[in-house]
């Protein structure tokens, strides 16, 4: 009886230590995620060209530049995405000359490419 009580106390203790460790890891993971998401970027991470500052300033208010750098869209699709971000993600609508600056930059520097996102042949790199 006493052994059973000791055992169950032991299990409870082990259980709460495990829970406490999980809580620590959860906190550290959340902090690590926030730190990764919060990494500041330099404008130079984007291709050089007219409109880069505008694109960097406007777009990184919400998301980092990976979303731009991985993309390879025609001007028409970039233009369409500006409306999509306004309608679906609460972006302030882009209009007039400013919109043209942004879309022109994206189309010129992040237009369709021939190389796939996986890159070239692994034995030539």
């Amino acid at each position: 009886m006493r052994i059973a009580r000791l055992l169950s106390a032991g299990i409870l203790l082990a259980g709460s230590i495990a829970l406490a460790q999980d809580a620590d890891l959860a906190r550290r993971q959340a902090e690590a995620a926030a730190a990764i998401a919060g990494q500041a970027e330099e404008e130079e991470v984007l291709a050089e060209g007219e409109g880069r500052s505008e694109v960097f300033g406007y777009c990184t208010a919400c998301h980092n530049t990976a979303l731009i750098r991985r993309s390879a869209f025609t001007r028409d699709r970039w233009d369409e995405l500006m409306d999509w971000m306004s309608e679906k993600h609460g972006m302030n609508p882009l209009e007039g000359e400013f919109r043209q600056t942004i879309v022109d930059y994206l189309a010129q520097h992040y237009g369709p490419r021939r190389r796939g996102p996986r890159g070239g042949n692994p034995f030539l790199d």
Binding site: L25, R28, Q29, A32, A33, I36, A37, G38, Q39, V45, H63, N64, T65, A66, L67, R69, R70, G119
Partner: peptide, 22 residues
Amino acid sequence: SDAPQFLQMEGKARLIMQGARP
């Protein structure tokens, strides 16, 4: 920016980063 980057986070393997924010 073109080379794949990998996640480094306690408790996670070396996953391929698709984006930092989100």
